[in-house]
Design a binder for these strands. Structure first.
Lengths: 343, 343
DNA sequence: CTGTTAGCGCCTTCAC
DNA sequence: GTGAAGGCGCTAACAG
């Protein structure tokens, strides 16, 4: 007579294929075959097994299955920050693309931190995701190459040498160029650039585009008009407020993303300046909310939802060994009502 | 001599405890004991094993481990919609609370659909999450009770009879009451309510609160001032635009969430009405962006980030068998600049 | 077509 | 303290 663990700790064992097999009077392999459709099974046995599964409420054990097959039918998604509306919209596209497939997304944030991002990646790999989708990354190239050697990897917003075929990145520089040129065409000459984090790749590209547009139009690149933010509202608000207080004259602002544009917008409001009558304002990303700001924001559109779909579809193809190519997406200037001709 | 599968399909086997054991000259049980600290092991063997693990880059197999122990060290999080800024902020709180624990969040969207939500829940359970956190739910009470019988469940934004101790829900009615009363105190008498989906519980509660405030102040409940939206901008915009075109007079709008307030704001703008000079506007939720609208939005604040932390902490306690109680949170009216005294 | 037989990588008694 | 042996639930050859 064996001593048993206290009842409270006894593992609740589920019903297994053994139980189903016994109930249906067949062997476990037959049950397995029916579950996975991996071979033809006589009609009568199939029915018996199906009835047994039904009656017992059988559910195959995911862990045992994955342990055997090596496939978990899940796709890891790690965004710098789930909360950012920009990434959120990409995630929406990914989720929708996966909805009608047997794969499930598993999403986490990297919190803009190498430590946390690394941990998230390791955890996902540890959990045996079949593929990994990185939306932005703070990790160095070699770390990403290492990750790619361990699991199929597709990246957004970053081009890693050696992984080009699986990196989707749009021409940020061109987007910024379009935005800045738009302002110049409206007659603006003193254009503030509210840039993103000093080391972030997209932020750098956008700054380049801004400068290039100035240069191409014989306008000076003025350090006093280049501000640095953090892709969120508050620091942008502060930075622009500070600039306004120094009384450096300008007539337009190009913010490196929509959230910073919102911060800038409020700073202008605080100083009694109207958009677009006193100052024109352009953002970047076209997050969903930007169509509803007052006035609706002129911005550079990244088709984030479709990008998400494209990323997911491509990764799925790769995971399943199908030939695939990442689709190309274009940045475009969406002219709404926050910009106008300089009077 | 056995035939082997083609090299290309050969599973890349990782290094297992067997390899470590061999390398260290001990048995696999000893290795297991060291990994889990489940028993004392002689110092020299411990060192040998640790060296071997290091040298081989050993990583325990999550699936095998979970298959044995029944614990996956993961917490499922299912939000109606990850993309909604409201839920996103709750998720942020959850992620942060879990950061310093051995548990990892696994987040998915229910897409405001019973089908998808059910699928997400089943998938998570199938993946053996140790606990489940539902942020909103479209499922009927009995379905949720059933889920709770299979896995530790904590809910936000919904009170399920029989699960009260694990349901966190704030007094939506009171929040709406505060908002409406604020408008009334400012002198408004014709107050439009831009409500949420007709069947959604929070939406209903908020509508009740709105009506109650009117009644308590001897103001009539007027069906022509009650609009229905969908918790997003576009339908709200349309609805209010339509109302404005029917020329029903009103001086204030109470929207059932901030996103609808943004839609309403644009409709007013389109008709040349200024906020708050011509019309006062109040929202609900206080999503991060609302502090940066023009003018900054008066709204009912739900401390979403802290709620997320509270939910996660409680669930963790439950999962680990510690006594725990869900913290209580208060709704509060944040008065910013979108409301003013009726002239 | 179907049953038998090995494992997948790990944890956990059970003897020593 | 430590090793051997037996599963966890399932898939995948291998023989019939």
């Amino acid at each position: 007579m064996k001593a048993r663990a206290p009842a409270a700790i006894v593992k609740k064992r589920g019903v297994t294929i053994h139980a189903v097999a016994r109930q249906a009077g067949v062997s476990i392999s037959t049950v397995s075959r029916i579950i996975n459709g991996s071979a033809y099974v006589a009609e009568d046995k199939r029915r018996a097994v199906e009835a047994a599964m039904q009656a017992l409420g059988f559910q195959p054990n995911y862990l045992a299955k994955t342990l055997m097959t090596g496939r978990s039918m899940s796709i890891g998604v790690i965004a710098e920050d789930i909360v950012s509306p920009h990434y959120a919209d990409v995630i929406r596209g990914i989720e929708h693309a996966l909805l009608d497939t047997p794969y499930n997304p598993v999403v986490n944030s990297g919190h803009w931190s190498r430590t946390y991002e690394t941990r998230a990646i390791e955890t996902q790999i540890y959990r045996h995701v079949d593929g990994l989708l990185l939306l932005g990354s703070t990790l160095p190239d070699d770390a990403l190459l290492d990750v790619a050697s361990r699991v199929p990897l597709v990246m957004f917003g970053r081009v890693v040498p050696g992984l080009e075929a699986h990196c989707l990145s749009m021409d940020q520089r061109r987007g910024a160029y379009l935005a800045t040129r738009h302002l110049i065409e409206l007659g603006h000459r003193a254009i503030v650039h509210l840039g993103g984090p000093a080391l972030q790749q997209d932020a750098l590209e956008r700054r380049h585009g801004y400068r290039q547009a100035l240069l191409d139009n014989d306008l000076p690149v003025r350090p006093d008009l280049e501000l640095t933010g953090d892709f969120i509202e508050q620091p942008a608000y502060q930075a622009l407020l500070h600039l306004l207080e120094t009384r450096v004259p300008f007539t337009a602002v190009f913010a490196a993303n929509d959230q910073m544009a919102a911060g800038a917008r409020l700073a202008l409001h605080r100083k009694g300046l109207r958009v677009p009558d006193d100052v024109s304002l352009v953002g970047f990303d076209d997050v969903p909310a930007s169509a509803y700001t007052i006035p609706p924001l002129t911005t550079v559109r990244q088709p984030t939802y479709h990008i998400g779909q494209g990323l997911a579809t491509h990764l799925l193809n790769v995971v399943q060994g199908r030939p695939s190519q990442l689709p190309a997406f274009e940045l475009s200037l969406v002219i709404r009502e926050s910009t106008r001709v300089l009077r």
